[in-house]
């Protein structure tokens, strides 16, 4: 564990608490893509299957359980409790265009051609693009509640911090995880446009609005 990874994980935790806070205080999941949230459940369930056969640390296990449980809970809130506030007509990204290629990629790029390793690769690739339905929705509506942008920023910062973590691990442990690094760089890259607007507008006290 190093500083960057810990900070990244804390940022990930923060993003989930911000999202829960947004849903519960506004009593609405307006502006949140159900598809992205569903993809995160798929990501966590497929990646953290190793809870059953690999022990890393208490920290690791607790975080994994938290990410699975919280993502399922968010899905429940969106699907049942605050269902009327979710508008599927603007959440129209075709996720099969993500699931298919990620599955094919995981068959080609994996560390071992086994069920659990293929699922692990799949989850890494899927996580990299899981935010696309959300960003697509943002693009369509052209604006977002400030708290929603804080959620997205925390989520983006989490992945961005994994990059210095990998650099640090390369120099201190000689460790390189090409699949995670490649997917992680792509994932962080997807946030660049968003970050630009977030830093130049939202953090200056303005509303998140995309140019028409």
């Amino acid at each position: 564990m190093n500083f960057f990874r810990l900070l990244g994980d804390l940022s990930h935790l923060a993003s989930i608490f911000i999202l829960l806070h947004k849903i519960q205080t506004t009593r609405s999941c307006r502006g949140i893509s159900f598809k992205t949230q569903a993809l995160y459940v798929a990501v966590f369930v497929t990646r953290y299957l190793d809870l059953f056969f690999r022990y890393v640390s208490l920290y690791n296990s607790v975080m994994k359980l938290f990410f699975i449980a919280s993502s399922c809970y968010i899905l429940y809130l969106m699907k049942y409790k605050y269902r009327p506030t979710h508008d599927p007509s603007i959440d129209t990204f075709r996720i099969e265009y993500l699931l298919g290629p990620c599955f094919v990629l995981s068959l080609i790029f994996n560390y071992k051609f086994s069920f659990s390793e293929i699922l692990w690769s799949f989850s890494i690739f899927l996580e990299a693009v899981a935010i696309l339905p959300q960003l697509f929705m943002l693009q369509r509506t052209g604006e977002a509640e400030t708290i929603t942008t804080h959620y997205l920023a925390a989520l983006g910062v989490y992945r961005a911090l994994y990059i210095p973590n990998w650099i640090y691990r390369y120099f201190t442990e000689g460790l390189v995880d090409p699949i995670a690094v490649t997917a992680g760089i792509v994932q962080t890259g997807l946030y660049l446009d968003f970050f630009y607007v977030y830093f130049t507008k939202v953090l200056q006290g303005q509303k998140f609005e995309l140019p028409a």
Binding site: R5, D9, R54, N165
Partner: peptide, 10 residues
């Protein structure tokens, strides 16, 4: 060894 990867990250 990559085939024995530990996946210790989240």
């Amino acid at each position: 060894d990559a085939s024995d990867s530990k996946h210790d990250e989240l």
